[in-house]
Simulated assay, not measured.
Amino acid sequence: MTALITTPGFVDAHIHPDKTTWGSGWLSRTPAQSLTDLIGNDLRAQLSLQDSVEDRAYALMSQAVLNGTMAMRAHVDVAPQIGLKNIHGVRAAAERLAPFLNVQVVAFPQFGLLSNPGTLELMEAALTEGADLVGGIDPESVDGDLHGHLDAIFALANRHGRDLDIHLHDVGAEGLAQLRVIAGRTVAEGMQGRVTIGHGFALCDASQPAIGATLEALADAGIWMATCALGADPVPDLDLVESHGVKVALGSDGVRDAWSPFGTGSMMDRAHLLGYRTGASTDDELERCFRLATTAGAELLGSAVVKGFSGPTSLDRLEFAANSIPELVVDRPAPLRVIRRGEAITLKA
């Protein structure tokens, strides 16, 4: 017999709602052989979309809310090619959903920071026009200047008192070396616990000789890892990462955008995918996937709504027809009810 269980809400620790085509027409995607190809395809797609950023972001974020997400960290593109319209659009969508969803906006230099002139000035402006965090991206492979890129984003973060969230797709020994530099810089700047690495694909290759030393450096700096288990992207050995003291949270990444046709906005689906991609089979392993999608993400974002969950009487909770958390992760049902402030959520179009 199926029981009713209650859980904390979901937290999406890494999502790109400004890029989504959710609620819009179908986007046919162009083949890409490299990160540079993907970034170029992304810009062309964004410039071609007819629906506003606010409308598309609201459609996706509403879908997330109805599937139990109560907080998210949204990475939002900033560049001369698009100005600050994505920041304004996502912030407007977030304000419409404010009673139900806590949103942190990251100003994200997707198309390069130093290598795309004018972006750094727009990043600074974004922090006064709706962005909460400073983002970065592959200082070497995208910007071609590891120390210059870090100088710029750490300076922005310090000047405005903001945290950092850096995309790092680079792999192998070079990727690990960048991570150790970032960890050292984090400690030198006194920003322990305030820096996140998104993706961190170099950390997903346990065969690398320097993987242990790199994880230890990240742990010493209090740096989080946000992983997404998207498509063919590498996933970490969670036992290895956590055994070194590095905290991990889970996100959706791109949802039905130029990068990928997949994604649902449901963190239950994402926990299932993480379990599948990492070979989870025991109850403990499946429960960890759920934890990374809920309370771990809440710790990263400082979400009191999710961290404050105390059981069936919590004012903010999810209700499911299931007998256990491992069963939830495998079956990935939608919640029967999403409860915020003691009331079941209903959203208007």
Rank of each mutant, 00 (worst) to 15 (best):
G23S: 05
L146G: 08
L292Y: 08
H160M: 06
A71D: 00
L286T: 01
A226F: 02
N41A: 13
C289W: 05
T282H: 10
V338G: 02
D233I: 11
T227M: 09
L318D: 00
I345L: 11
L336E: 15
T196A: 07
V105I: 11
A125H: 14
R337G: 12
L133M: 11
S28I: 13
H199I: 06
G200V: 01
K19G: 01
Q81W: 08
I339H: 10
V134R: 01
G222Q: 11
G311L: 11
L120C: 08
V181H: 12
L97K: 06
Q192A: 13
G193V: 08
A188C: 13
A298L: 08
A92H: 11
A334C: 15
D331K: 15
R194T: 05
D132S: 06
M225L: 15
A349Y: 11
S24T: 01
L230S: 06
L238P: 02
L146N: 07
G198K: 03
V235I: 08
L179W: 07
D284M: 15
A157M: 07
A59W: 06
T30P: 09
L164E: 03
L347M: 09
R44H: 14
M1Y: 15
H147S: 15
P17R: 01
T2M: 15
L315T: 14
P117W: 12
P326G: 03
A321Y: 08
L203G: 00
D138W: 07
H244N: 11
V338I: 13
S52V: 04
A188M: 13
I211Y: 01
I137D: 00
T214C: 07
S260A: 15
R44C: 13
P209V: 00
P333I: 10
A57K: 02
A349R: 14
T346E: 14
D51V: 12
V235S: 00
E327N: 10
T30C: 10
A131V: 03
Q104V: 03
S62K: 02
A71P: 05
I197A: 04
I345M: 10
I39N: 08
H272P: 04
T196S: 06
S62A: 10
G23D: 02
L274N: 03
A213C: 10
T30D: 14
A98Q: 14
M268G: 02
Q81Y: 09
P312T: 12
S310Y: 13
A206F: 07
D239C: 03
A94I: 07
A71R: 03
V78E: 00
G9D: 05
T128A: 15
G198H: 03
Y276I: 12
G254P: 09
H16G: 00
S115G: 10
